[in-house]
Simulated scan of single mutants.
Amino acid sequence: MLRIHFTPEDLVRVRVAPTYGPLVEAMFGFRALRTGGFGAVPELWRRRVIRGQPHWAAPLSEVLGPESAFDIFTLLGRASTAAEGLESVAAMSRHRLGTEIEATVRWRERRRLDAKRWPSAWVNTVAADVAPGRILAPLIEACHDAVVAPYWGHIRRQLALEVAARTQLTAANGIEALFRSLHPTVRWHSPALELPSHPGPPADVHLNGRGIELVATVFLSTVEGPFWNAGDPSAPAVLFYPAVPCPADAATIFTADTEATASGGGGDGPLAELMGRTRAAALAAIAGGCTTSALARRVGISKAGASQHASVLRRSGLVTTVRNGSSVVHELTPLGRSLLAGSDPRPLPIQGD
């Protein structure tokens, strides 16, 4: 049992993030492949990856460690595209990697895990390199290309729908309903979020005003975290939760035409044919809300182009735009959510009702 304690300031700083990007999804996918914890992910996906005889699997297994304690997810950070994420990985400093390794070693010591098992000699060699990111980047890129890239369009669409649904639920029923909807095992006993499925002895963590980001991923079957950015004590904690509520959704993601999604565009298939690939990708990127600058980053276009696409979507009744201070925030309308989903969206269940 893990209890995450919230102050009033933390509750104000709860955010639902669309995704941490394709590289973080790839790392979760690789861990699922490695541990057998596939959740709702079909066997077809596993066979396709294994058939490629991945050369990157063994060294990445050493990085993640035998208990998967190493926080590679916040180490990679948020990146809307693989290219952006790989650039950050390649620039990773020896100090940054060393900080995360030290934090993981302390985590293992508190749980009395064998210090000889991790870090391995190879991990220590990478950490001692003047540019460790240049060693890790090609391995992470190859993993991404096999695990996520062929399906990224469908994955991003699923994540966009998930975030839109969570945002709508929060607006209608409040933050407690959002917490209770994350997973059947999650319980909200104010002022703490309880995670009974968390491994290890009972523990309490306090956010102390830093807030928390809730990030959906398709490769999870339970809630995981919180993860902390050791390099930035003021950054919000990150809690990952499952984005695939039923096997039928997973089948749609991983058995669809992979060629159509390989480019990573959020607008694939019929929606792209109707609206154009970039505008369809913009519609998916707006799910959950975003500013014009964030829209530009997510789709990989200029800010002026993002503003133009948002204007067209707004005139079509698919998007609303509200000014928030010096910026504007775009949100999907019910019609926009329905178009993105391809059908009328079903309400999320609220656990405990």
Score class of each variant (00 low, 15 high):
Glu194Ser: 05
Ile212Trp: 02
Ile212Gln: 05
Ile350Tyr: 02
Asn173Glu: 03
Asn208Glu: 07
Ala165Gly: 03
Ile4Trp: 06
Thr291Leu: 12
Gly39Trp: 11
Ser181Val: 02
Phe6Cys: 14
Ile101Arg: 04
Leu60His: 07
Val148Thr: 09
Pro184Phe: 06
Gly288Thr: 03
Ile50Glu: 13
Thr99Pro: 10
Arg78Gln: 08
Ser93Leu: 02
Asp353Ile: 13
Leu75Phe: 06
Leu75Asn: 07
Ser221His: 04
Leu178Cys: 09
Glu9Asp: 11
Leu295Ala: 13
Leu23Phe: 08
Gly36Leu: 01
Ala142His: 01
Glu67Ser: 14
Val218Lys: 07
Leu75Tyr: 14
Ala79Asp: 07
Ala128Met: 10
His154Leu: 02
Pro349Trp: 06
Val329Ser: 06
His55Ile: 08
Pro202Trp: 08
Asn208Asp: 10
Ala164Tyr: 02
Arg134Ala: 07
Pro18Trp: 08
Arg15Gly: 05
Gly77Ile: 00
Leu214Ala: 00
Ala90Thr: 11
Ala171Asp: 01
Ala192Phe: 08
His189Tyr: 10
Ala90Asp: 14
Val148Gly: 03
Ile301Arg: 06
Ser326Lys: 07
Tyr241Trp: 14
Arg314His: 14
Ser234Val: 11
Ala306Glu: 10
Ser326Arg: 12
Ala250Met: 10
Val223Ser: 08
Leu239Lys: 10
Pro66His: 11
Val105Trp: 02
Ile140Trp: 01
Ser61Ala: 11
Gly39Leu: 12
Ala146Ile: 03
Trp228Ile: 10
Val14Arg: 00
His309Lys: 15
Met1Tyr: 11
Arg346Gln: 13
Thr167Met: 14
Thr185Met: 04
Arg166Ile: 14
Trp45Tyr: 12
Trp118Ile: 01
Val14Thr: 08
Arg337Gln: 04
Trp152Gly: 04
Gln53Tyr: 05
Val89His: 01
Glu273His: 15
Ile286Lys: 05
Gly98Ala: 07
Arg337Phe: 01
Leu44Trp: 12
Asp129Met: 13
Thr74Phe: 03
Asp257Val: 08
Arg180Phe: 05
Lys116Asp: 13
Ala248Pro: 02
Leu182Tyr: 09
Leu33Lys: 13
Leu239Arg: 07
Val312Asn: 00
Pro191Trp: 03
Gly269Ala: 12
Leu139Gln: 13
Ala250Trp: 09
Glu109Met: 14
Pro226Ile: 01
Phe38Asp: 11
Arg47Gln: 13
Ile286Thr: 00
Leu2Cys: 12
Leu207His: 04
Ile350Glu: 00
